[in-house]
Design a protein around this nucleic acid. Structure first.
Length: 209
DNA sequence: TCATTAACACGGG
DNA sequence: CCCGTGTTAATGA
């Protein structure tokens, strides 16, 4: 396990990796499982060993928007921030595909931030990339038309799964983008005519990322 | 004007 | 067959 982690986050000090492997707890999740609900008390920091996790913001009506994905070697910036303040979660975390998470009790966070330069870099690096992804998402929501959002959604998915081939229905996409299937079907058809994608039943193939 | 809802036919798996 | 897909018409924001 510690081997697994040090491969993902190669610059962590060996001393730190030892410490993590001593107190860390590995948990396995399958697709669709909810790891964190809004309002949950956070006392552990997750690090993604493999798979992918969707970080989702929910309003009071239960409507959702996808903030960003977490992938191997990522930690959740939102959760970390919760841990440091000993707060509750503002977000929901759902497993995208089969995932292994490494949990580290949050009481070590402050100490590690001071003690380990590599941990600081790891955390700040993650903050940086996730904040940028969040800005991209905000841009897409605020400024882009649905067709551009759809294309971003498809390429994001392709990146997360590491494949140009996506197995999902138009309805699922419509749900994720808070739209209707009619619109998604029409836009996908347009993208196909622009030769950006190919459409099949339950399957969409991107020409490139 | 453009999205959503409902309705319907087609056909792939 | 079942349901995902492609379209259309009516309605609403």
């Amino acid at each position: 396990m510690s081997q697994n982690l040090s491969n993902l986050v190669y610059f962590l000090e060996t001393e730190l990796v030892d410490e993590i492997s001593k107190i860390g707890l590995v948990k396995h999740y399958s697709e669709g499982e909810v790891i964190i609900y809004p309002g949950d008390k956070i006392d552990k920091v997750p690090i993604i060993l493999n798979g992918s996790v969707k970080v989702i913001r929910e309003n009071e009506k239960g409507e959702e928007i996808l903030l960003y994905y977490l992938e191997s070697g990522d930690t959740c910036a939102m959760t970390l921030q919760c841990c440091m303040r000993r707060g509750t979660s503002e977000i929901k975390a759902v497993v995208g595909e089969e995932t292994q998470l490494l949990f580290v009790p949050s009481e070590h966070m402050e100490e590690w931030m001071i003690k380990y330069r590599s941990w600081r870099e790891f955390v700040l690096g993650n903050y940086h990339t996730k904040l940028n992804e969040l800005i991209e998402t905000v841009d897409a929501l605020a400024f882009k038309q649905l067709d551009e959002r759809l294309m971003k959604y498809l390429t994001d998915k392709a990146k997360v799964y590491g494949s140009l081939e996506l197995n999902m229905t138009h309805q699922q996409i419509a749900d994720d983008l808070n739209s209707s299937r009619v619109v998604i079907s029409r836009l996908l058809k347009q993208l196909e005519q622009q030769e950006l994608i190919s459409l099949y039943r339950n399957r969409i193939v991107l020409k490139s990322i």
